[in-house]
Design a protein around this nucleic acid. Structure first.
Length: 672
DNA sequence: CGGCAAATACTG
DNA sequence: CAGTAT
DNA sequence: GCCG
């Protein structure tokens, strides 16, 4: 925007011409502004001591590139601020009185049995390196210094009167190097009113409704609350002391609420970044304990077929997992994208409960039905529907029930899943994962002896995200020459099978030329040499893995007639059962052309992938998946973002950058 | 109040 | 076709 | 359950 560095450049005090300190809290509407110019404006304001806020409900002066009153009201309402227009000459009303909310916290101290069959994840593995460090210096929260309202503006620095002013006012002020009256630029003069839809503070009976209401109001203070009131007492009684519908729950038990200074929100909070793929999400975030509670609730939603609930909780969880501070107040939750009063209330409950648990989450541990469903869905090949069928239609409650009464009706993979039930649930340590990868790679190259350069293997999935234990092993095999990757899965699996590494193949995906959105005249001329644009085979094999070697040292066994020792050896191995754990391994083969997409698509986490797709759709109108990026329109033209990348890592980076995400380390994609 | 990622392969 | 898995 |  317009810069006028008129005054002589004396260090910092360069162009801090007009001083906005006397202005009420200012919010800049992002509408019709590029992120850059928005930031620029904010910088300008901060430089000049403006009390810039990122919480619109806290603002009394709102700048925006809009000109109509109606539009202004809409902008406010869409941000949760309800208003009614007031005449410019109507004297400002005093702020509403707010019912004193005494905290009837829901003290439920029912300690629950912790049957945490939950999650087989996490444990040590320190490496968290989140960090909002990136992004330049953001404007600090409004200075707490006392303010001397400028005559022409002061009137709106209080209570619930809000002025929406054209952005041009700022430009003119800068140009004139003095504060101008907002009058000529006033678009909308309004009074904040309570949100009609929200539960009105009527019956303080229910603790839930109460806390919901508390939080509702707290939301307004969520992002920035001017730090501890300045020592300098402001004689301007109604100036900025209570810039809000009064204090939130300063309630009894919430000593922490007011005492501790607020965290400065990370940039993604300030900028309301709703896509998990644009944030750094470490494996062990500061609020992991709370997240674990939410994960349980989400799991309950899964078991009860509430897909939307699962979505919602996933979104909230991802946001909290990206939050770099230990949350101290439930109001902080409200500032996070994807989180609202529901989650904030849950945090409140979590925080004030004796054992830091949630009643809802505990249901997973105490409800027999949920326990059963949980057990059943852990069978590979059994999903939520089937689990419920087993439980509610067949009245089975244990795995033995299934085996005893339903074995013949199970699909092959379900039988396998049952057979190795416990082993599949055993987490796979990283060294073992890399060992498996090495073996697979060895076999891959063994079956392609003439590949000039070696076939490469990328370990993706949870391993790549840094998990110390993984539920399965995800491997992507690739080679620059598509002749080499053709039919590779089959050959690799066969080779591994013959050596005893693979005991079962659960499913083979031979993604034939799944191409044909348009007339595909020529039958994907098998030739395969057709490097054209034929989206070919992104093949994969889902297999059961077991190390065939084991110590059979049954040393004091009768050494019968020592004929052929080798023979004997084999016999012995045969006779004793292989005690090695069976693991799930996914072997994926990706053509070099799209290996960046494959790696990006298979590294996860789930919410990361989901939001990645949403983001790509929204911003580019493209369709992303692990086999490529395509135009959504125009019959799905291929968008090659990774051309030129010389390694799969580099190609992944190119894809991410081409999609408009920056780079994000795999360890920062742990959205849960 | 509608939408929420997405497409495909395999099984019974 | 419904269900599961990636 | 949250967002636009």
């Amino acid at each position: 925007m317009s810069e006028h560095t008129a005054s002589s450049p004396t260090n910092d005090e360069v162009d801090s011409s007009p001083d906005f300190l006397s202005c009420p809290p200012i919010f800049v509407l992002p509408t019709h502004l590029s992120l850059e110019s928005l930031h620029e404006i904010e910088e300008d304001l901060v430089k000049r001591n403006a009390r810039l806020t990122y919480d619109i409900s806290e603002a009394r002066l709102i700048l925006g590139k809009i000109g109509q009153e109606k539009r202004a009201a809409l902008e406010l309402r869409s941000r949760g601020v309800w208003t009614e227009p007031i005449s410019k000459y109507e004297p400002p009303t005093k702020r509403r009185r707010v019912e004193a909310q005494e905290p009837v916290k829901s003290a439920r101290q029912d300690d629950i049995i912790d049957l945490s069959t939950e999650t087989e994840d996490e444990e040590d593995g320190m490496r968290s390196r989140h960090g909002p460090s990136r992004h330049l210096n953001r404007p600090k929260p409004p200075s707490a210094s006392a303010s001397t309202p400028h005559p022409s503006i002061a009137s709106s620095d209080q209570s619930d009167v809000i002025s929406v002013v054209k952005l041009d006012w700022l430009n003119q002020c800068l140009q004139a190097q003095e504060l101008l009256s907002i009058e000529p630029y006033l678009v909308y003069l309004a009074r904040q009113i309570p949100s009609p839809a929200k539960p009105q503070p009527n019956q303080p009976t229910k603790t839930t409704t109460k806390s919901a209401d508390i939080l509702q109001r707290a939301k307004q203070d969520a992002v920035l609350q001017p730090p501890p009131p300045p020592p300098t007492h402001n004689h301007h009684s109604r100036t900025h002391t209570t810039h809000q519908p009064p204090p939130l729950p300063q309630t009894t038990t919430s000593e922490h609420d007011e005492v501790v200074s607020p965290h400065s929100p990370p940039p993604w909070v300030k900028n309301n970044i709703i896509y998990a793929c644009l944030r750094s999400t470490p494996l062990h975030p500061p609020n992991e304990d709370f997240i674990n509670q939410l994960l349980k609730i989400r799991h309950i939603r899964e078991l009860t077929l509430d897909e939307i609930g699962v979505r919602a909780y996933s979104t909230s969880i991802a946001a909290i997992a990206a939050y770099p501070h230990e949350i101290r107040r439930s109001s902080e939750i409200l500032s996070l994208p994807g989180c609202d009063t529901k989650i904030a209330n849950l945090f409140h409950e979590y925080q004030h409960s004796a054992n830091h648990t949630l009643a809802t989450a505990n249901e997973l541990d105490i409800s027999p039905s949920l326990q059963t469903l949980h057990t059943f869905t852990n069978i590979w090949g059994v999903g939520t529907k089937t689990a419920r069928d087993f439980h509610y239609n067949h009245n089975w409650t244990t795995l033995d029930d299934i085996i005893e009464h339903g074995w013949p009706t199970l699909s092959r993979v379900q039988q396998i899943g049952l057979k190795y039930y416990d082993e599949f649930l055993q987490g796979i340590p990283r060294p073992e994962t890399s060992h498996i990868a090495a073996i697979v790679t060895k076999h891959a190259n063994r079956v392609r002896p003439d590949a000039g350069t070696p076939i490469q293997c990328a370990i993706v999935g949870g391993y790549r995200r840094g998990k110390p234990l993984c539920g399965d092993v995800d491997l992507i095999l690739t080679h620059r020459d598509e002749h080499i990757t053709k039919n590779l899965v089959v050959d690799v699996v066969a080779s591994l099978e013959s050596e005893g590494w693979i005991t079962h193949t659960l499913v083979l995906h031979l993604m034939h030329s799944q191409r044909d959105q348009q007339t595909l005249p020529y039958r994907a001329s098998d030739d395969s040499t057709a490097p054209g644009k034929n989206f070919d085979t992104l093949d994969k094999a889902l297999v059961v893995w077991q190390d065939p070697h084991f110590d059979d040292s049954d040393h004091h066994h009768h050494h019968s007639h020592a004929d052929t020792d080798s023979e004997e050896e084999k016999t012995r191995q045969k006779r004793k059962r292989n005690p090695n754990i069976h693991h799930r391994v996914d072997i994926i083969v990706s053509p070099w052309r799209t290996v960046g997409c494959a790696v990006l698509g298979w590294t996860g986490d789930k919410t990361f992938e989901r939001d990645l797709r949403r983001y790509v759709k929204k911003t580019h109108g493209w369709k992303f998946d692990s086999s490529g990026v395509r135009e959504r329109t125009t019959g799905g033209q291929v968008v090659d973002l990774e051309a030129g990348g010389e390694t799969w890592e580099e190609r992944e980076r190119l894809v991410m950058q081409g999609l408009g995400l920056g780079w994000r380390d795999p360890e920062e994609r742990c959205t849960r």
